[in-house]
Nucleic acid binder design. Sequence first.
DNA 1: TTAATCTTGATAATATTTCTAGTGATTGTA
DNA 2: TACAATCACTAGAAATATTATCAAGATTAA
Lengths: 153, 153
Amino acid sequence: MKLSLRGEYALRALIVLGLNYGRSVVQIQTISRQQNIPKRFLEQILHDLKSAGIVESRRGVAGGYRLHAPPERITLAAVIRHIEGPLAPVSCVSERFYEPCTCPDEAKCGIRSVMKEVRDAIVKILEGFTLAQLCERVRQLHAEPGNPLDYII
Amino acid sequence: MKLSLRGEYALRALIVLGLNYGRSVVQIQTISRQQNIPKRFLEQILHDLKSAGIVESRRGVAGGYRLHAPPERITLAAVIRHIEGPLAPVSCVSERFYEPCTCPDEAKCGIRSVMKEVRDAIVKILEGFTLAQLCERVRQLHAEPGNPLDYII
DNA sequence: TTAATCTTGATAATATTTCTAGTGATTGTA
DNA sequence: TACAATCACTAGAAATATTATCAAGATTAA
């Protein structure tokens, strides 16, 4: 599980949306400027998150994006799985993205059994972590919360 | 931490060398055939492991590779770090491969703090796991151990 | 001397990641 | 209606990483 830039951008964008949950939609341009993410690239990412049902959009003049579900119900595991694919270090130990590897016999593969442990450790952390908790951490990291839109993540 | 083919091949090769530790050297060709790893590619990988001080080689007619240290003293963390780079999902939380990320302020980055947890979990497992233990698992996975060279990993 | 082996550097082929561009669709408002 | 702001979608350029191959050379045991 390595987080690509795409994945990092997705999380940063979701934090912004999370901090604004319950208010109006947030425009791509706003997120792009605030987080220093290439706008066109961010468009793609948000569209991707929409197709995953994580965010929803509103078009037109006062358009923008917002979370589809409350941030308490969005786990980091779900987000990263959708953007990055398997959380497992090798896909032959992935539950949701299983693919056979090149080893002659999986059942007798020593590497597999270790990587399964790694996978479980990663999954345990990321499934137990919601976007709400992440937003809370961000809030805590800022001594004096001003306008949420100005948060530097 | 995603394991590339290169990393998987490295581990498989090391298991073969681990199972043969204390005996003679093992030829690249032997490992290549047994594990179905492209020979030229394996050459590179073993040379790489040699430069890391993990294996040593003997040239000439009866040449080949063997472990430089006893398998008890080789951790999976050390091997994977050398082949793949940082174990951390983002390099801004890596201890040995630290690099700043694109976020405006690391100290206040919520993502960072979560990824640090993930990193620690991965490191804990892989630093506590030696090649000897991995070889032991492989032996256990085979009900009837025959010639170690014939192990299918 | 010979044959088997590792050594080394170059590089080809492919896949992935990151990012840009262009065009079209939708919507609120004047 | 017409306009401007915004999302929707597709294509693909550019850079990088991964996987693999080739060829000539150095080393060594027999």
